[in-house]
Design a protein around this nucleic acid. Structure first.
Lengths: 146, 146
DNA sequence: CGGAAAGTTTAGCATTGGCTAAACCTATTG
DNA sequence: CAATAGGTTTAGCCAATGCTAAACTTTCCG
């Protein structure tokens, strides 16, 4: 029954996409945190938990708990009651996120959406674009500029 | 201190994006489920829990649990040991999802990414594009075709 | 039609990511 | 330098989403 086999194969392939989305979700939060922390350090010289909480629109206690996980994951370091630092790996992830973010946001603008929408949508989309799509977006931008 | 006010304002606006992403995530799973169930019904005449589990790449028990929530939310209906049906609202959500999905996938293809990537990325992106961005994508497609 | 195979559900557990309220430090200032 | 105001952490709760193993139905076949 080639029919059956084909269907099972397609299902398996499809499930890959969903698996990736679930994986993306767990790293998504980490990326948002490190990106935000990097921004805060660049902007104000230091990142405090309460700033992170405010910008993410989340309670202080939530940030504390999440930072603990990120610390275990080797992305940030922090002493109690002190401000937050990024590890080398944390910086790497932050830079990567910013790069993606910039491309996606610029791309949306080039596509003709409002600044407001570009900002909001890019925040959500950024974590779900593969490198290939990112390259396609960059190509589009390059063409557009010429 | 206009400086301070401005920053607080920007932070608030930024947090809106993150809040929306968190909200999107809760509806995301529901959308994936109903879309998949709709596809299964169209393809094979009925949707069984185990098909859903296989295509999502998730354990059977997880599907059972999630379907219970979706039932409470009024999106699907199901008798124990029987196949799954969509309510009117469920169909509405499924159609909406499919529409978005099609546009995003076609858009990515038009942008020049591979079919494989278009399929995978569109699955992730679909839940994070606003109507405005979707319209921009549709516009791009229309222009491209001419 | 009775029993085994296949398919579903329940039970019970873990992790993530939220929250509030209470406890706890730090820092400022009288 | 002590008291208090303000920022930070802990404690303890909840819901969602995942899992495995065990129990339970349905279905199918001899």
């Amino acid at each position: 029954m080639p029919q059956r086999t084909k269907k099972a194969g397609a299902a398996k392939i499809r499930s890959v996409a969903f698996r990736r989305i679930r994986a993306d979700h767990s790293s998504e939060l980490a990326e948002d945190y490190v990106e935000l922390i990097a921004d805060l350090i660049d902007e104000k010289g230091e990142a405090r938990g309460s700033d992170v909480a405010m910008r993410l629109g989340v309670a202080n206690a939530t940030v504390v708990k999440t930072l603990k996980r990120l610390q275990d994951a080797g992305l940030v370091s922090q002493e109690p009651y002190r401000s937050i630092f990024l590890t080398g790996e944390g910086w790497k992830m932050a830079e990567d996120g910013r790069r993606k973010h910039k491309i996606v946001e610029a791309f949306l603008l080039a596509l003709g959406v409002s600044e407001e929408t570009a900002r909001i949508d890019s925040e959500g989309i950024e974590h779900h674009v593969s490198d290939e799509t990112l390259r396609a977006m960059a190509r589009f931008l390059a063409r557009k500029v010429m």
